[in-house]
Simulated scan of single mutants.
Amino acid sequence: MDNLNIQTIRDEFQDMRDRSVSAKQIWQTFLSRNGRISEAFNRIGELESHTRKEFGQELNALKQEIQEYVDANQETEEQTPIDLLPVAPIEVAEERGHLSLISQTLYEIQDVFERLGFSVAQGPQMETEWFNFDALNIPVDHPARDMWDTIWVEDKTEPEHQYLMRTHTSPVQIHHMHNTKPPYRVIAPGVVYRYEATDATHETVFHQVEGLMVDDVTTIATFKGVMQMFFRHLFPVDTEMRLRPSYFPFTEPSFEIDIRPPGSEEWLEIAGAGMVHKNVLENAGVDTAYQGFAFGMGVERIIMLKHGIDDLRHFHAADLRFIQQF
Score class of each variant (00 low, 15 high):
K278C: 01
E68K: 12
K53A: 09
A289R: 15
A40S: 14
Q28H: 15
H178W: 14
F55T: 05
I187K: 07
E95L: 10
V186Q: 07
E58N: 13
T198W: 01
Q110G: 11
W130K: 03
R260P: 00
V70D: 01
G56C: 08
D15Y: 06
Y163T: 08
G56Y: 00
P171I: 08
L47W: 01
P189L: 10
G45S: 13
F131M: 04
E129H: 13
D238F: 04
V299W: 03
L47H: 06
G123Q: 07
S264Y: 03
F248M: 07
G274V: 09
G272E: 01
S170V: 04
M165S: 02
D83Q: 10
R313L: 01
A200L: 11
S103Y: 05
H168M: 00
D216N: 15
F118P: 11
F55C: 00
P253M: 01
E58G: 04
F206K: 11
N42D: 11
S246Y: 08
A135F: 13
I102K: 10
N283W: 09
H142N: 13
R244H: 06
K181Q: 15
M241Q: 04
E12Y: 07
R52F: 00
L281Y: 09
V276I: 15
T157S: 15
H168N: 13
I66W: 09
F223I: 05
D319G: 04
E127V: 03
Q57P: 00
I151N: 15
S20C: 03
W148F: 14
E252N: 04
L31W: 07
M213R: 13
S38Y: 12
V21W: 02
L136P: 13
E95P: 02
F206G: 06
T8Q: 04
M1H: 14
I37G: 07
G298I: 01
I44M: 11
I44F: 09
V120L: 05
